[in-house]
Design a protein around this nucleic acid. Sequence first.
RNA 1: GCGGCCGUGGUCUAGCCUGGUUAAGAUGUCUGCCUGCCACGCAGAAGGUCCCGGGUUCGAAUCCCGGCGGCCGCACCA
Length: 506
Amino acid sequence: MGEAYEKVLEIASRRGFFWPSFEIYGGIGGFYTYGNLGTRLKRNIEELWREIFVRRHGFYEIEDPIINPSRVFEASGHLTHFREYVLECARCGRIVRADHLIEEQLGIPAQSIDGREVERLVGEGKVRCPNCDAELKAPVTFLTMFQTKIGAKGEEVGYARPEAAQGMFLNFRRCIRQARGALPLGLAQVGKVLRNEIAPRRGLFRLREFTIMEVELFFDPQNPSCPWFDRVKEEEVAILTEEMQERGERKPVRITLGEASSKGLIKAEWQAYFMGVSKEFITMLGIPEERQRFRGHLPEERAHYSVQTFDHEIHLENWGWIEVAGHAYRTDYDLSAHQRHSGVDMTLLRSDGSRFIPHVVEPSFGLDRLVHVALETSFRTMEGRNILAFPRSIAPINISVLPLVAKDGLPEKAREVQRILMDAGLVVEYDERGSIGRRYARSDEAGTPLALTVDYQTLEDGTVTLRDRDSWRQVRQRIDALPPLICRYLKGEIGFSELGIPAGDV
RNA sequence: GCGGCCGUGGUCUAGCCUGGUUAAGAUGUCUGCCUGCCACGCAGAAGGUCCCGGGUUCGAAUCCCGGCGGCCGCACCA
């Protein structure tokens, strides 16, 4: 079953979903280019997310720069928390992380070690190479953020953002005013972020430049309830909490979000709410419920800004559980930090006159990972053919238009039908190469849910056949009735059999 | 970053160990014929820096060294 991954990668590059970037120059790890099908698939997933997380809640969406001045990340804590001190052995050249080595050899907790301490301990020869016991070279810092210079003289140091969230915090004051001061306030952003990963691998899972989709939900900690919580509180989810993992348990509990929230397993109701929305979203991408779970971060893996984080994980055959989203409770960490560093007041006024800094809950999705997961989950084979059975709402191409044979005026008629469907706003692929069977096979491999065939009967009565990608069944329908029917079908409002009357000889 | 395996037309692979004329096959693509619903058939064609660089050799896809890229394990993933 690990072949699904190999097969999907092969289809992805051959058919134009994605492939390694810069390949004519030998390639560089961690960068991928999306082709026509991949770009559409990615955008459709993004639109579905936007519908479910943003539009439906009336949240605001912003777009903030990728390059930020260093002060932003000094304030946010990323510049200190993103920096690793790395030690290299003078003899064998082995490279190790300073904090891990010091904790291991001297028993000093990694969190309490700063750069000066590292230099002192290494200089005094307190730590040795774990591999060959030789002396270590002076520590070098490794920053996983991309650094650049801003301006002609380059005196201003800038960094590429490693997360989109800071944009929402930096612009919070303006946005809350535009929202007329009302909490809860949801600010959303979709955009590229950059992380200089040490070892990018596994295709779209560990990229150096990737797209993130985030909501920062601001609320008053004295009024932490989510007005929509009723919608999800009966929803049952699989949760593996921090405590369970510390007890060595590996099997998640199944519990309703309402119960998980009231029992305190999930600290903020908003967090629990978004976990419910998250499950709904991921399920709509075609991932079955039993392959989803939420896993609480252990303290040492939790980001510096978070008091509780749940990863939304999906089980894949060859990687096991992989993270596609993080649900973090960031409290007032970021707004307080920016208030402290910028001197700008981030507080809001309650009706009783008291002032407070809002708390923040953040659902954050890695879009590229979702693209891969959608591809791999939808992959199946039928009679030796590859099929990408995408949910209809995210399929890159809506419908293929095919003449039964490429002669006798059928191609011309098919082109007319293509025009009609394109004018109706559909993404249509016309194909007359090879035989009809080959064209169906190509259509299936691109994940196109419908194939429309123009045959000799079309020329007589203006009807065509529609073929279902997943069952290969066919129905017949009049051309002029098609546009609204197909649109409703793609939205999932009607089933395949409602598209027309069954067609024979299949 | 460390260790193991790997890199051959668009795709998948053979050839490499045991260096030797035009680098083989399948599939895909293109042209023509054919076509009456599931990768049909026939004929023909195009398509390769054998990952890159260096070395050994009369001669390197093949042997050696270095680099780049990929996969797996370890580490990392704020």
